[in-house]
């Protein structure tokens, strides 16, 4: 018989620290130009804050560990992973989510339009992250060639594998995004 295993994983010792006290932390967050005041568990990630507390569910959870890119949002215009960013750390900075790229009934952002035109998604689950990543990719100057786009969009997995269509969409939107 093999030795007894304890814990949820064999190699993982039981946590010795006492349970976390019930406490919340006041935080302020500016999302898509709107200021939100929240009292949250300090461990809350930006992704969970957006989805569970603010009600902006466009940002998706695909792994919660920085491996898929579905949670990509813009922080002061740069792409970050919402699942690896603590909500408490974004005070005083501007968060842009997919819901902030265009107005509900208005014209789409050129990148959204390009994704639609090129059928650059199937299930659509990775799409908000892809689109925000694509906007940042262009602004970073990494959309100069198809090869560059492929490389700099590789942090966003698409299991439906809409990759050729995503590259075509980024190429279509790039000139307009550069000008904006």
């Amino acid at each position: 018989m093999l030795p007894l295993l304890t814990g949820t994983a064999a190699a993982q010792p039981a946590p010795a620290t006492p349970p976390t006290e019930s406490r919340t932390m006041d935080m302020t967050m500016e999302v898509n130009g709107q200021v939100h005041r929240l009292a949250l568990d300090p461990r809350t990630t930006l992704l969970d804050a957006l989805r569970e507390h603010i009600g902006l569910t466009g940002s998706k959870k695909g792994c919660d560990q920085g491996q898929c890119g579905a949670c990509t949002v813009l922080l002061d215009g740069r792409r970050v992973l919402g699942c690896l960013t603590l909500a408490a750390s974004v005070g005083g900075r501007q968060v842009t989510t997919i819901e902030g790229l265009s107005r509900p009934e208005g014209a789409l952002h050129p990148m959204q339009q390009a994704f639609l035109d090129h059928d650059a998604f199937q299930c659509g689950y990775c799409t908000p992250g892809q689109i925000l990543s694509a906007v940042a990719c262009v602004r970073e100057g990494h959309a100069g060639s198809a090869e560059d786009i492929r490389e700099y969009m590789s942090g966003n997995l698409c299991r439906c594998a809409a990759y050729p269509q995503i590259v075509a969409a980024v190429q279509q939107a790039a000139p307009q995004v550069e000008r904006s």
């Binding site: 902006l56 989510t97 997919i98 819901e99 994704f115 059928d119 659509g124 689109i131």
Partner: peptide
């Protein structure tokens, strides 16, 4: 259903 998918809706 594309518009819903590219807007987060």
């Amino acid at each position: 259903d594309g518009r819903a998918k590219v807007t987060g809706g």
